[in-house]
Design a protein around this nucleic acid. Structure first.
Lengths: 330, 330
DNA sequence: CTGTTAGCGCGTTCAT
DNA sequence: ATGAACGCGCTAACAG
């Protein structure tokens, strides 16, 4: 593949002039510039961005580390990141950690070695990986999940408030034994949504026995198993709040399999919009998150931090919205 | 950030020795190797893979260019690519073209400039972009969609056969006016699935009037509109074969909105598994594709081509499977 | 087995 | 406004 020297030779100028024409910084004689552009076209020249990155000591790559590419929540988010990133001249490397801290660590290592311009991460728990990036001076933005004990730009949603609204809504519709299927203990989102649930119960004078709470894995299977376990308990619930989209699907599947009517025998509210929800009857009440916006915001924050590395970290919290549909009204 | 010279100085060896220890090619005196490893740890040294790539004239990045990150078909595929790629030492850059040839062209340019080690592409129609890659000597694998007029490694599924099975199945269950909602004319998958549909009709002695065929956009909205258009026609169908997953969802939504019973008034079969299908009653009959395997196979092929650039291109066709469920039996 | 040297392709001084 | 020379960090070739 042609190099800048080949172009220079063909255009009878120096490589420096070619570089100037291509990057449009300094002024170049129009005649020479035209010769250069012709030579570029003739040789089908593409600048080598590896050499460029080495010379400039910076790349145009962002890593987005998420825990599940199969979850529409994350793909919507990635789409938001990508749209903003591409506009700012960055390519996005999608890294799927599968909720596995070891895999996440490998991606962080790769981001470090590739000298990525920035990282957006929805971390699977511990702050160690994020700290490695910060120590190396790599711009980072935490998205969706909070990093405890580390000051870092973050884009979150009002998890506690959303969960509280969802639970209060169930209480307002006469449900009394409201269960909660939340996520892994280590994840901030799971903890915050559980807290919102508990606060709503307290505010409505309802008991919040531990036997109505399940910690699952934020996946469909986990939601199914948790729902089954709640139903098999001594005193089953009459409503359930599931703390993410896939677990909501699992829980509903379990109810359908057992022929338990929604919303009559059991009311259901899920956190985050559910894939395929439109096909399901009754339609599902959910706490909607601005997923695409989440990605856009994180990308914007990352671009700003790259431009201004020393400014203090900021946290942006986006609002959720309760979408009342049929699954929660009896 | 520390360089290989910093490490060499601290370990009192030459940079070349550090390189040898890190890459494990040549043999190095155990004592020196230990000193190097200590220095690496002390300085928290990370090799600069930009410099390495420049020196070696090759990178460890693959681009996967797909048309819709929001479609579970593509995310499953990407997951397969990524799993194989990571094992072979490659990171995967996910590029979402949104079915837009211009956006696809930009990603191809980026892949070229970044000297990516390889590209896996589900191209949105024309072969021009793929040809640019081939001319530049970049290893390419076409996935899901065939590239016409260009010899290139390809991983496809037996679209025509799958569509034929689906349509024949509807005919066998007594449906007589079977419609087809297929994709954009330019896409090989759309054309092949349409041909399979037509062949099955012919084999079963059924007419195949053009008024029963719709070309939509492979998205939910398109499926919905196409279904509506079929229902509003003079002589509506009693069954429909939808040529991809999202259009199936759209078509079913349309039927639900209009209160048209499935499978009694209209039988439904979709190509590719449908997101959220498990929640839907009646359950949907589909032509299942080995999506994850598709990705794995393409990645394997790409790795092989990188190792052996001059071997003749091969095409691998994976099998689909008809999953008979409730939506097609009356 | 180890060190010295050169160069991957580019952008950026510094002269002119 | 243009060109010559250097070096980003690394690894491969060669010498010792």
């Amino acid at each position: 593949m042609a190099t800048i020297y080949d172009v220079a030779q063909r255009a009878r100028v120096s490589p420096a002039t070619v570089s100037r024409v291509l990057n449009g910084q300094a002024t170049v004689d129009p005649g020479l510039a035209a010769r250069v552009r012709t030579a570029v076209r003739d040789l089908n020249y593409r600048p080598n961005s590896v050499a460029r990155s080495l010379r400039r000591s910076r790349t145009t790559l962002w890593a987005v580390i998420i825990s599940d590419v199969g979850n529409p929540f994350f793909t919507a988010l990635v789409r938001g990141v990508e749209d903003v990133g591409q506009r700012a001249g960055y390519s996005v490397v999608l890294c799927n950690s599968d909720e596995d801290p070891a895999k996440e660590a490998r991606y962080v290592t790769a981001a470090l070695e590739d000298r990525m311009a920035g990282v957006i991460i929805s971390s699977s728990g511990r702050s160690a990986n994020v700290n490695r990036l910060i120590e190396a001076g790599t711009p980072v933005v935490a998205i969706d999940r909070q990093i405890s004990g580390t000051r870092v730009d973050s884009v979150l949603v009002d998890n506690e408030h959303g969960a509280e609204l969802a639970t209060a809504h169930l209480a307002a519709h006469g449900y009394r034994r409201i269960a909660c299927i939340t996520g892994p203990r280590k994840l901030s989102t799971a903890a915050q949504r559980l807290r919102g649930y508990q606060r709503a119960l307290a505010a409505n004078g309802l008991a919040a026995p531990a036997c109505l709470v399940r910690h699952a894995d934020f996946r469909e299977e986990g939601g199914y198993a948790a729902m089954a376990s709640l139903l098999d308990a001594a005193d089953p619930p009459d409503a359930v709040f599931a703390a993410n989209n896939l677990m909501t699907v699992g829980a509903v599947e379990c109810l359908v399999d057992r022929g338990i009517g929604i919303p009559d025998r059991i009311g259901v509210v899920g956190f985050d919009e559910v894939p395929g929800a439109r096909l399901f009857r009754p339609s599902l009440t959910t706490v909607a998150q601005p997923t695409y916006e989440l990605g856009r915001t994180a990308a914007t924050l990352l671009a700003e931090r790259i431009a201004e590395p020393d400014r203090p970290p900021s946290t942006i919290t986006l609002r959720t919205e309760l979408k009342v549909r049929e699954s929660s009204r009896r």
